Simulated scan of single mutants.
Amino acid sequence: MPRDDVAARLIAALDQGDDVALARLLSDAVRMVVDTGDDTGGSEQGRASVIPALRTRRMRHPDASLEPVRVNGGPGLVLRRPGGEVVGVLCIGVEPDGSIGDVWLSSAPGKLTRWNRGEPAEG
């Protein structure tokens, strides 16, 4: 799968609640790191842990839309509320085989400041 296509496929799988599609996108040893800016963040390892963690994080803002963006020069997603507020940025690490090997989610308000000023921040 093309490197940039991975973001669109991830959006489709999350929006459709398709765990099979998510499993196909993620490497066996996928790792997810969540930076919330407080002690509610953390990390998950492996498909069986990352898939429900992604769904749970997505459902915290059911009215928000996922949009593909560039983050740190690579594919990523932004979670944007209807009024335009960015409530999360997901950086996607793509493995040589095209699967997702790592995801880094930032939902720390202080780290989203530039995204919310209308200046897409790289990272």
Rank of each mutant, 00 (worst) to 15 (best):
Asp38Arg: 02
Gly93Asp: 10
Pro68Val: 00
Pro109Asp: 11
Arg57Glu: 10
Thr36Ile: 05
Ala12Lys: 13
Val6Met: 14
Glu67Gly: 01
Ala64Asn: 07
Thr113Tyr: 08
Asp102Gln: 13
Leu22Ser: 02
Arg9Gly: 13
Leu77Pro: 06
Leu112Tyr: 04
Ile11Ser: 05
His61Ile: 01
Asp39Asn: 13
Gly17Ile: 03
Trp104Leu: 15
Ala64Met: 08
Leu22Gly: 02
Ser107Cys: 00
Ser27Val: 01
Val50Asn: 02
Arg58Cys: 07
Arg70Thr: 12
Gly76Gln: 06
Ser107Lys: 03
Arg3Asp: 05
Gly84Ile: 08
His61Leu: 02
Val87Phe: 14
Arg117Pro: 00
Glu67Val: 06
Arg31Trp: 06
Val33Thr: 14
Leu25Met: 13
Ile92Ala: 02
Pro62Asp: 07
Pro62Lys: 04
Arg31Asp: 04
Asp4Trp: 12
Gly42Leu: 12
Ala121Asp: 12
Asn116Tyr: 07
His61Gln: 06
Val78Asn: 06
Val71Tyr: 14
Met32Trp: 08
Ser43Phe: 14
Ile51Gln: 08
Val50Ile: 01
Gly118Phe: 12
Val34Pro: 01
Gly17Ala: 02
Val33Arg: 14
Ala13His: 08
Ala8Ser: 07
Val33Leu: 11
Pro52Trp: 10
Pro82Trp: 07
Arg60Gly: 13
Glu119Pro: 03
Gly76Thr: 04
Glu85Ile: 02
Val71Leu: 13
Gly88Trp: 07
Val86Glu: 10
Thr113Ile: 09
Gly93His: 07
Gly84Ser: 05
Ile51Ala: 07
Pro96Phe: 03
Val87Ser: 11
Arg81Asp: 13
Pro68Arg: 09
Met1Phe: 13
Val50Asp: 03
Asp102Leu: 12
Ser27Gly: 15
Arg24Ala: 15
Glu122Met: 12
Met32Gly: 03
Asp18Val: 04
Arg57Met: 05
Arg55Tyr: 00
Gly73Gln: 10
Ser49Gly: 09
Gly123Pro: 08
Pro2Arg: 15
Gly93Thr: 03
Val69Asn: 08
